[in-house]
């Protein structure tokens, strides 16, 4: 595995929201950054900093107004809806603050969903989804619906769903925001394990404590990169892993 290949490359990314007529909001005012394979990066910033907009663009949920975004050296900044959907499906695993599981489907089906959209045949799909759930420690919960699971378990289902298609990056938006600190720590331990297994993780948060689990912190303020530094003192939760 080449640990130095660039997964994400942003050059002068701008995002301008037209608020109707003369007024416009510059959410991103020229962001440039690179993320390598197998990096564990935290993106931080107060609300209104443009952090969410940046995450949406990195996650291919949104396209920049201008600038170049290359994902695995492919230009995604000018892709259409369906092409973006394909990139999201194959290359990006999302983990959301509110879990965003389908309430009426059991854990297995939730995890299967990206495989359905990828066109994986049923038998393989079931096996892969089950493996992904076992991987996050929920092998015995595959037929539980989200409301039958605890918050931490729900987030694990979401992580399994994010990883089931073997994406290039795991994009987590405040993954511990809706969890108590103990389950939050458990999720961070899981992330650390995933990182050690070779996954590329991008963590979006506004909490310093959570961000310190990463190896690099990019701080966003007023739509610009304020600082981009390695983490010197990593959070103590790591002790539990090693």
């Amino acid at each position: 595995m080449n640990n130095n290949s660039v997964v994400i490359s942003l050059q002068q990314i701008k995002k301008i929201y037209d608020m109707g007529g003369v007024e416009e909001v510059q959410a991103l005012r020229g962001v440039s950054l690179e993320i390598q394979k197998n990096e564990y990066v935290a993106i931080m910033g107060p609300s209104g900093s443009g952090k969410s907009t940046l995450m949406n663009i990195i996650g291919c949920l949104d396209t920049p107004t201008s600038g170049l975004y290359e994902f695995n050296t492919v230009n995604v900044s000018e892709m259409n809806d369906n092409q973006l959907a394909r990139v999201r499906n194959k290359e990006i695993g999302f983990v959301f603050q509110t879990f965003n599981l389908l309430a009426r489907s059991d854990a297995l089906h939730n995890v299967e969903l990206p495989l359905i959209y990828a066109g994986v045949p049923s038998v393989d799909r079931k096996r892969m989804a089950r493996e992904a759930l076992e991987h996050v420690g929920l092998g015995d919960r595959i037929h539980h619906k989200p409301n039958e699971l605890s918050g931490g378990q729900r987030q694990r289902v979401a992580v399994a769903r994010a990883l089931v298609n073997r994406p290039s990056i795991l994009l987590a938006d405040e993954p511990t925001g809706n969890l108590d600190s103990k389950t939050g720590d458990e999720i961070m331990i899981l992330f650390e394990e995933l990182h050690r297994q070779g996954n590329t993780i991008i963590l979006v948060t506004h909490e310093e404590y959570i961000a310190e689990h990463a190896y690099r912190i990019i701080r966003i303020r007023d739509g610009m990169v304020e600082s981009d530094t390695p983490v010197e003192r990593r959070a103590k939760v790591l002790a539990a892993v090693s």
Partner: peptide, 16 residues
């Protein structure tokens, strides 16, 4: 709406 958003985020295309 939320469900549609989730499905789109994990790769559902328009026609899906």
């Amino acid at each position: 709406t939320k469900e549609i958003g989730i499905r789109k985020a994990i790769g559902a295309r328009r026609r899906t």
